[in-house]
Design a protein around this nucleic acid. Structure first.
Lengths: 275, 275
DNA sequence: GTACGGTCTCAAGCGGCTTGAGAGTCAAGA
DNA sequence: TCTTGACTCTCAAGCCGCTTGAGACCGTAC
């Protein structure tokens, strides 16, 4: 039996962490002196601790680790868990590499400070009502919008319906939140379409008439989505200066087909009223 | 002027985050109604906010961002900051990739569960006192040990001193801590060496006689350092079973030259006494 | 006995928000 | 003018995986 300090040295884990693991029941000492409260650890606990450290190193939460160890999960479950983590880490590596690129881009941008992109013009339009197939969902990750759009298009094709215009999304949230965004994916179709179209998992595209917008402040965004803020800024500046104010959820219209080499065109539409 | 909810939608930042940024003075609203406490934001604040988001995305802390923006740092400083982050992120990508490999290794290990490495034997030895050149430091990162060892060897070479044995480290901490480890890097030399040897930065290798160890429990570790726990476990089990107890800081002796293809050999020595 | 160092418990702190309770404010419709 | 209902406010606590610190007790060597 080792006192906590010795055990700390042996297993290369800080005393504070060992106490914490004891507190949360992840690694209770093999013996606790009931009069002094001293924790005593046995070498037999090292295998468990090493498994804890290994799993922690892989990025699992202590809760997950506790469950994994206490439920004696099967090799298969363990494999599944690790493979999931593998995928997550791989994704993070990608993210980080993208971040690296953004840092590099930012560096270049700093070099040529001042040379801003020419700002697009904001124009006022009236948007007509239109017959659409649409699905509204609360999604966990913003990127899922793309998937949803793809699914919807596929379903349209499978039913032999041709879109009557470029797809759009409506952002229904009262405020922005990165998780659980309340969005609607909308595909304009001919007015003869009246039946819902099913997607996977019991979801479906409903057919209805999307209301028009009396006055919409619109801007055309040229280029990648990750520069979309620039156009949102421009439109916000315009709204503020013009004496209008926002009167409903904004829409994004995706004007170019995916993969179009000529560059991406997106229109942002904000319902506004004088006020 | 926009109310916080509108502004949130425009800039795609949660209301709660905007309030937080206001609280910490990172992005005070352009106007706060003194009777109601309502925050009002102007489109003119978007550039600042975007800069905040960009820097946050790069992984800077809000504190750093605040300083960066309020001190109007020069392009050069900005460049320096970004390049540092670039290096950090690159390092993290490497870490994550190493982690991926470890997950993979763990998966393989699970496949052949049960086939443990043969455990090395623990033996008792008496270690003689020896003349050494050594430096004791509190280091921030464990990896720095390697650097320190390299530096020390180079200094030895520059003074024409030949080592009298393999180098070792002594872990002086009473308990393990990942940062600020108190370690001593030790190079055995001939007894004629009595003068200190200077390193960079005013540090020096001091010459002295390293005390021997009456009884040391020793184990030979074959293989990578990241499997060192296995041997530490073995030695702990041995100590516990044998009725000895730890009587001083452990040493690691690096028996193979760096880059030796035959595999790494490391000896762990724990001073012990009956008790 | 008396240092001195190890251990204990309990509470707070870190970062970057999020969540919730409870109360006040605003704008549109009746 | 009043009532909704949506929006906003403040303040406190929670998240994770520990770390740090205060103040008190414990154990061993001289």
């Amino acid at each position: 039996m080792f006192k906590i300090g010795e055990f700390s040295k042996i297993c290369r884990v800080p005393v504070s962490a060992l106490r914490y693991y004891a507190d949360i029941g992840l690694l209770p000492p093999s013996h606790v002196d009931s009069s002094t409260g001293y924790r005593y650890y046995s070498a037999d606990q090292l295998p468990r601790l090493n498994r804890i450290l290994a799993l922690r190193d892989l990025g699992l939460s202590l809760d997950q680790i506790k469950q994994a160890l206490d439920d004696h999960l099967t090799l298969d479950e363990m494999r599944g868990m690790l493979r999931m983590r593998q995928a997550e880490i791989a994704r993070q590596v990608e993210d980080d590499q993208a971040r690296l690129n953004r840092v590099a881009a930012r560096l270049i941008q700093i070099e040529q400070e001042g040379k801003l992109m020419p700002e697009q013009e904001v124009i006022l339009k009236s948007i007509e009502p239109q017959t659409v197939l649409a699905i509204r969902e609360v999604i966990a990750q913003p990127e899922y919008v793309g998937t949803l759009l793809g699914e919807s298009y596929a379903a349209l094709g499978a039913h032999g319906i041709t879109p009557a215009g470029p797809p759009l999304t409506i952002y229904h949230d009262q405020e922005f939140k990165p998780n659980d965004m309340d969005i609607e994916v909308v595909l304009p179709v001919g007015s003869q379409v009246t039946d819902a179209v099913s997607l996977d998992g019991g979801r479906q595209l409903t057919a209805y008439t999307l209301a028009g917008i009396n006055t919409a402040a619109c801007i055309l965004h040229k280029g990648d989505y990750d520069r979309l803020e620039v156009s949102y800024n421009a439109i916000a500046r315009w709204i503020e200066r013009s004496g209008y104010r926002v009167a409903g959820p904004p829409r994004e219209i995706y004007l170019t087909a995916p993969g179009d080499p000529a560059g991406i065109l997106t229109e942002i539409q904000y319902p506004v009223i004088k006020g």
